[in-house]
Amino acid sequence: VSMAINVAISEDDRQKIEAIDWLVFDPSQRAEALKQANAVMRSFILVKKHNAAREVFDKLPADSINVVYKIWHAKTGSTSLPPADDNAVREYMCTKAYLDAMESYNDWFSLYHHSKPSKPSSAEVGSSFTDRVAFEHRLKQYDQDLERWQYKLVRQTQTTKDRVYNVLLFMDGGWMVDRYEDPDDEESRPQQLATLRRMHIPALCLNLHHMLHSSRLYSECLQLADSIASEHYQLYKEFNKDDLQQLLRQIRESSLCLLDQNKDPLGYDLV
């Protein structure tokens, strides 16, 4: 398990990102801009260029969904979008949920693995009085830093957990799943959505497990299985056998930690 690598942005990518500027210029074209931006972000996320996808995302004005609804309503009097536009709005929200989750996880990862304050070593303490005073001062500083770090970590863990579950349990049928079939959809789009699910859902689950386990939230590690096995969300269908075996091995590690705490393997008190 590691941090999501951000693959560097090439000159070609740069052009694709800049092109979005031209599309958002005219509000009446916003639905089209949304679809184009989605396609570019999709292609970036498929190759793990999360930074590039975020840049595209930021180019779309925040009120874009509203604009799409308004223009459609003005044109037809209807408040429900045609399938193609509805799918585009939904994909845009799925992309946002995913980028938020990944960035939050990366923040957690660097906070947990790279920002922990290190304890001052007592080896350097000489015999002199000033040395000892200085050491005690540093020790006190360390305790404060550690407390602050732990507080930040707990909050970051909670935020990241919410955001990852936000993707895993995406409302109305799941992440990157269209609500309506669009007969005019380009052939490649449904396939790309399916690939995104297959690529990222198992990885997100394993990342979530890593974070919960590192945070000693072992019971929650076990309960992760509830969401993955659920028929409602069907996350398990994105896992192949190896993924599932790896997941179960990871969950086993959490169970062993619970046993060490004199609980049963699922974290319940022993009777």
Binding site: L222, A225, D226, A229, K241, L244, Q245, L248, Y268
Partner: peptide
């Protein structure tokens, strides 16, 4: 005794069935 525990046991069992050969 615990509904939630039963649910997690069943969920894990389902995943294990799918992970098996």
């Amino acid at each position: 005794i615990f509904l939630a525990k039963r649910k997690t046991l069943l969920s894990l069992s389902k995943l294990a069935a799918l992970a098996s050969d």
